[in-house]
Every structure is written in C-alpha cells, then in structure tokens.
Amino acid sequence: MDYENIYIEEENNLAIITINRPNKLNALNQRTIEELHVAFKELDEDSEIKAIIITGSGEKAFVAGADISEFANFSVKEGRQLAAMGQKNLFNLVENLSTPVIAAINGFALGGGLELAMACHFRVASSNARMGLPEVSLGVIPGYGGTQRLPQLIGKGRAMELILTAGMIDADKAFAYGLVNHVVAQEELLTLCVKIAGRISKNSTVAIKHAIKAVNAGFRYDADGYATEIEAFGHCFGTDDFKEGTSAFLEKRQADFPGS
C-alpha cells in the first residue's frame, strides 16, 4: 500500500509509525485508519520487528481527534458502522497485536487520538501533552473504545468526570492518574521510547505474545483471565524460547531467543 498519511522507519528490530497530517493536527480520517490497519498488520507479521512506536508529526499533536468533516452528516446506521469498523480495523487490532505497541504522545491526544493511545500497550507523554475525550461537547460519545478503556486505565469516577465534562488533562495529571507511564521533555520522548523498546526486544517474542493475550483477557467480559494465563503459561513450556531462556539462565549467559 502506498501511504499518504503515515510513514514508517525501521531500525534495530524497531518500527516507528508517524501519523503525518500536520495541517490537520494529525486527525484520524478513514484513509489514515486504513493505512494504520495495513501498517500494523504487516509489521506484526514481520519477525524482525519486535516493538512498534506510534507518534504524530510535528510538536503540537499526537492525534487531535477524528476528522469531524468526514462524518458530520452521517445517519444512525452510518455512525454505528463507523464505530464498529474503526474498532475492528484499528483500535482492537492494536490492543491485541502480538507485537508490543508504545504510544509516544507528543502533544494533543484528543478524542480518537486518545482512544488510539489507550489501545496501545502503554503510553509515554511529552511534558506539553494534553489529553481528553471531548465528544459530548459535539453531541456524541467516544466511539472507538474510549468509554471502555479509559475507566480500565484510570478508574470509573475519574473517567466519568473526564468524559462528561469534555475536559482535558495535562501530562502530569495523566501520569498521576496512571494514564501514561512516563512524562519527559519533548526532545527526550522518542529517545526514552526507543530505550524501552530496546529492553523489550531482548526478551522472548513468544512469551510477550502470550503475556499480552493473558493481560487483555482479564479486561474482557467473555474471557477468564486466570484461565487464559494458565493455558498460556503451560504453552510456553513447549517452546524453543523457553528452552533457550532457561538454558541461558542456568548457564549464566545472555539468552538468544529464536522466536519459536
């Protein structure tokens, strides 16, 4: 696929996806969602890529929401389809990706932008970042998983207040709430994310895949997180990565995981 609204850089088992619509503050339109869907699928299937960072171009915005002009005149049916397809093709895809995804929030993360960041496995923010779900100020609600993931991350009461007031919080409050893992100066944002990704890439990709699945199962209404963990734990014992990891530990050397 020829990308118009994103670009990808790959180096040292790491891929960095940058959403590049600076004139729209990197707002998510349907083309961008489609491009991100393809990019995440392809990177997840690439055995050389062990971590993914997603960020926005420029210094103002990660993603400043969805592109409202695309759906301002939608019908009820079209609105429902918009949310369903967006969740299926991007937000749920990212959350359940086998490859860890880090959101590098470099500015405004509003509406669909914050929903995209919350779908990632964890988040790092620059000190100038601002986050919120302003949808009710437009007469609609968050439709890309925001009403579900925000309470999971910061608690029901805080999520209710943020959603119902359509307010924004700064990076420090997001850190205090547990919405982001780290806050750094903007010039240090990608450096820290790359450092964390490098630590991830040294570990077993097979074990990481199962860990992501088990953690996510604990937040699903139709899954038993403990049962998923037990099954995944047992499965790991039959992998080459487990054999290598335990052998390396006993032999007091660095593991070289084959990824199988």
Rank of each mutant, 00 (worst) to 15 (best):
P142G: 02
P142Y: 00
G143T: 00
Y144R: 05
Y144P: 01
G145S: 13
G146R: 08
T147W: 11
T147H: 12
L150P: 05
P151R: 00
Q152I: 12
L153I: 10
L153M: 10
G155A: 12
K156E: 12
G157W: 03
G157P: 04
R158M: 09
M160F: 09
M160Y: 09
E161D: 09
L162Q: 09
I163W: 08
L164E: 15
L164F: 11
A166G: 14
M168Q: 13
I169S: 02
I169H: 01
D170N: 15
D170G: 15
A171N: 08
D172V: 08
V180M: 07
N181Y: 04
N181E: 15
V183L: 04
V184R: 00
A185D: 13
E187T: 12
E188N: 13
L189T: 08
T191D: 14
V194S: 09
V194A: 10
K195A: 11
I196R: 07
I196K: 03
I196P: 06
A197G: 10
A197I: 09
I200H: 01
K202C: 03
K202A: 02
N203V: 06
S204R: 06
T205W: 01
V206I: 14
A207R: 08
I208T: 15
H210C: 02
A211F: 10
I212L: 14
V215L: 07
V215Y: 08
V215P: 04
N216M: 03
G218N: 12
F219V: 01
F219T: 02
R220M: 10
Y221V: 15
Y221K: 15
D222Q: 05
A223Y: 11
D224C: 08
D224Q: 04
D224Y: 04
D224I: 03
Y226L: 13
E231M: 02
E231S: 07
F233W: 08
G234K: 01
C236K: 09
G238Q: 05
T239A: 13
T239R: 10
D241C: 14
D241Y: 07
F242K: 08
K243A: 09
E244Y: 03
E244V: 14
E244C: 11
G245P: 09
S247P: 02
F249G: 00
Q254S: 13
A255T: 04
A255E: 03
D256Q: 13
D256P: 03
F257C: 00
G259W: 04
